[in-house]
Amino acid sequence: MNSFAFTKWMLWLVLFFLIAPFSIVFITAFSDDNSLLFPPSSYSVRWLLSVMQTEIFVSSLITSLWLGFGATAIALVFGVPAAYALQRYPVPETEWIRTLLTSPLIIPGLVIGVALLKQFVLLGGNSVNLALLAGHAALVLPYAVRVVGASLANLPRDIEDAAFSLGASRAQVFWRVVLPNVRGGLAAATVLAFINSFNHVPVSLFLTGPGITTLPIRMLLHMESSYDPSIAALSMLVILFSMVFVFVTERVLGLSRYM
């Protein structure tokens, strides 16, 4: 069927367009040149080693990891009970709350960042760091609500009622029956929330400074000032990290089912 040949070619083209640029990052990461050339004139791992030993990269990586885990934890602690309530106890306000809880997705990150800066600066002290955490948590909360919600929607209500009538308290129903059965959704939400926070730039742009800087911001700053393969090396490491994260989740839990 010739229309199938056409659609198939289109798919390969799209996949090439989506994936191929990353091979350039990978090749450049092994460059031995002092400035960014493609293809590199010779190869080594010195840029990879160099970025791993550069204090500002390492410290901003640690910042990003903490930020990602902190934001994810907050998003889950607030988002999972909310997702449960939206699914199980529909009240007249449900649709409003659902819109509210997913609204950070439609507000430009830069706007969130500036707005938080304006408010938190008034508080003084370390409050900008808090604003950074709060902003990231708000940003990824929708993932927790939506993904866990989708997973809860697949859990028949009868199962909870069965546990309840066998003598379980509401808390026991939640811990012993609901949570184990939405594990996949929880894991997917965790991955999505963490990766999105870890890679996010706009919210952080105004909320990071000399004291505390996330890795993507550090990479942006570095790119503005120098034109060397260290960003390729860093990008490769970050990509590898993300790929392993996603691959493992897709393999173990079937992430795509929750997207």
Binding site: I159, D161, F164, L166, G167, A168, V177, N181
Partner: peptide
């Protein structure tokens, strides 16, 4: 409340715990 009633319930859908 249901969890204090000591009533054994068999659902049409069985409602077994999948995990």
């Amino acid at each position: 409340p249901a969890n204090k009633r000591d009533i054994g319930l068999v659902f049409q859908s069985y409602a077994l715990f999948p995990h």
